[in-house]
Amino acid sequence: MGTWYNIIFKEEHKNTGDLAKVIDLRLSSLNQNLSTYIEQSDLNQLNRSSSDGCVEVSDDTAAVMKEALRIYNLSNGAFDPGLGPLIELWGFDKKDTHEMIPNEGSIQEMLTKLTFGKSELNEQKQCIKKGSSDLAINFSAIAKGYAVDELAEVLEKRYGIKNYLVEIGGEVKVKGNNNQGKPWRIAIEAPDPSSRTVQKIVNPGIMGVATSGDYRNYFEKDGKRYSHTINPVTGYPIDHQLASVTVIHPSAMTADALATAFMVLGDKIGYELAEKNKIAVFMIIKTADGFEEQYNQHFKPYLN
């Protein structure tokens, strides 16, 4: 996944001598199924398939696809794992945009290639029918959260561990207490590209926590800022005042995807969607004087 992971736990009644090995094996299988870096991964084999039919996939791929389609529909397409053609057009896939702005015609052409929403998952046969034969799916905005959930399940079901913190690249899930016997406290980073400071401390309880922001990966041209977060509805980088959004949800996978969706939608539409669906959300919004915080009633209990 191109990032780090961190697990802290209190050993319970079972021997955890082989835990590191078991965790690494599970991560290896997750990569083998969901990675876009591994040429023969389950996901890449699906992406390379030119079949118009339903392609059989692994348990992991099917599980993530199911939730990805749900969040796609919930967000009216703001969360789109088939966004690759637009990301490539803007140059963010190579981390070197050359500060080039694509022309309108090219953007509109790429929008016609975003067919993720037309894809179908057949749960009974555990197969996926892509929205188009050339659709390439990338689960980078949801797979880390799914992996966090899966590692938490290993701790709980295999080892009976009830006090733990699991983190993969900033996506977190906690349960019980820390080593001091106190509830876990998770820091939300301030949207400052020049340093790493804390904006807020939350006590998530038995929950997953995911944050998405646009303050580290962007370029500026002619006085305008272009974020790496692209709106799959318009084809352009997001252009609103939302700098960071944090979601707390029982599933780290769901929190991961929702944070991305809300980041695309912005502070007004994203907040309304969170309220409508009773999702705990915390937003940091750019203002003329700096930043302001906004969170709903579902997030408030986690600030105690």
Rank of each mutant, 00 (worst) to 15 (best):
A63T: 08
L25S: 03
L43V: 15
A78T: 11
R26P: 02
E39P: 00
L30W: 00
L34D: 08
S58T: 06
E39W: 01
L89C: 05
Q45Y: 04
S35D: 02
Q45I: 15
L46T: 03
R70P: 00
E39M: 03
V57K: 05
S50P: 02
L46Q: 06
A78L: 13
A68N: 03
G77L: 05
W90V: 08
N76H: 10
V55L: 12
N73C: 04
A63G: 04
D52E: 15
S28Q: 14
E88Q: 14
G91L: 14
S50I: 11
L25Q: 11
N44M: 14
L69S: 03
A63M: 10
L34V: 11
A68E: 06
S29C: 00
F79C: 09
N33W: 00
L69A: 02
R70W: 01
Q45W: 04
D24T: 09
A68L: 03
V57Y: 05
E56R: 11
M65P: 00
D52N: 14
V55A: 13
V55T: 15
E88R: 12
W90N: 05
Y72T: 01
P85N: 12
R70I: 00
G82L: 05
C54P: 13
N44Q: 15
T61P: 09
P85M: 12
L34A: 11
E39S: 07
S29V: 00
G84E: 13
A63C: 10
L83D: 09
W90K: 09
N33Q: 10
S51K: 05
N76G: 06
A63P: 05
L27I: 15
Y37N: 14
N31T: 00
L25A: 07
C54H: 05
F92R: 11
L83Q: 15
G82F: 08
R26K: 13
D59F: 14
S58G: 06
S41Y: 05
G91R: 12
F92K: 07
V57P: 13
T61W: 07
V64W: 09
N44K: 13
G84T: 11
L25H: 03
D24K: 14
D52G: 09
S35E: 03
R48S: 11
E39G: 01
S58Q: 04
L25R: 03
G84F: 06
L34F: 06
D60C: 04
R26M: 03
T61C: 14
F79I: 01
F92I: 13
D42M: 10
L74D: 04
I38C: 00
T61S: 11
N44V: 06
S51W: 13
V64K: 03
L86Q: 10
S58D: 05
G82H: 10
D59K: 15
I38W: 02
G84V: 10
L69I: 05
S41A: 12
G91Y: 09
I38N: 00
S51E: 10
